[in-house]
Design a protein around this nucleic acid. Structure first.
Length: 173
DNA sequence: GGCACACACGAAC
DNA sequence: GTTCGTGTGTGCC
């Protein structure tokens, strides 16, 4: 039986549109494109492990730091900080975790094809596409740096327009 | 569990 | 441009 954790969320406006971050006491759990939270820090359903005041403070600090780091990244200022944020990976499959680790290795401004990525993790390009489509950490895990081997963009869970903008941001700086 | 199905692909024709 | 093989996750039974 998998442990369940209380989640907190925060929504904020960025140059690329609204983002919503979800976090637990183990780290960031999900990034969603859009506004799903209407107060500064929202407590989600308290579904599992009770949390104390210190845990609460830690999650709130994490959400605020993640927000600032993402904003810095999207403004093209500090680009490395978002990759150091703690992530809550308990609900991901081993294959997803392996793929996310490979993705983290892609440097800022570089791109890789689905095929190359597939070779790194020992699977097929089709499977990579399937896994990337369910990447819960767009932007932090740079799945926008994965493109088709013919140079076309492929797809993106946050929309191709966002993928194009993120690549443009990285290439001009 | 087992199965069918859906996919952000690639390669061969 | 069409077709097929591919690996994985998900939902249904």
């Amino acid at each position: 039986m998998q442990k369940r954790y209380t989640t907190f969320c925060i929504s904020f406006d960025t140059p690329f549109g609204w983002l919503t971050l979800e976090a637990t006491t183990k780290g960031l759990k999900r990034i969603r494109i859009g506004k799903f939270c209407d107060v500064e820090i929202k407590l989600g359903k308290n579904v599992g492990v009770p949390i104390n005041r210190d845990d609460y403070r830690w999650v709130v600090r994490l959400l605020k730091k993640a927000k600032n780091d993402i904003l810095d990244y999207l403004r093209g200022q500090v680009v490395g900080a978002i990759h150091k944020l703690p992530l809550h990976l308990d609900e991901l499959t081993p294959m997803q975790i392996k793929l996310l680790r490979e993705l983290k290795k892609i440097k800022y401004g570089e791109t890789i094809s689905y095929k190359e990525l597939a070779e790194c993790v020992g699977t097929s390009a089709r499977a990579c596409g399937r896994l990337l489509g369910s990447n819960p950490f767009p932007i932090i895990i740079p799945c926008h740096r994965v493109i088709c081997s013919d140079g076309s963009l492929g797809g993106y869970s946050g929309g191709l327009n966002l993928k194009r903008k993120l690549l443009k941001l990285e290439h001009k700086s």
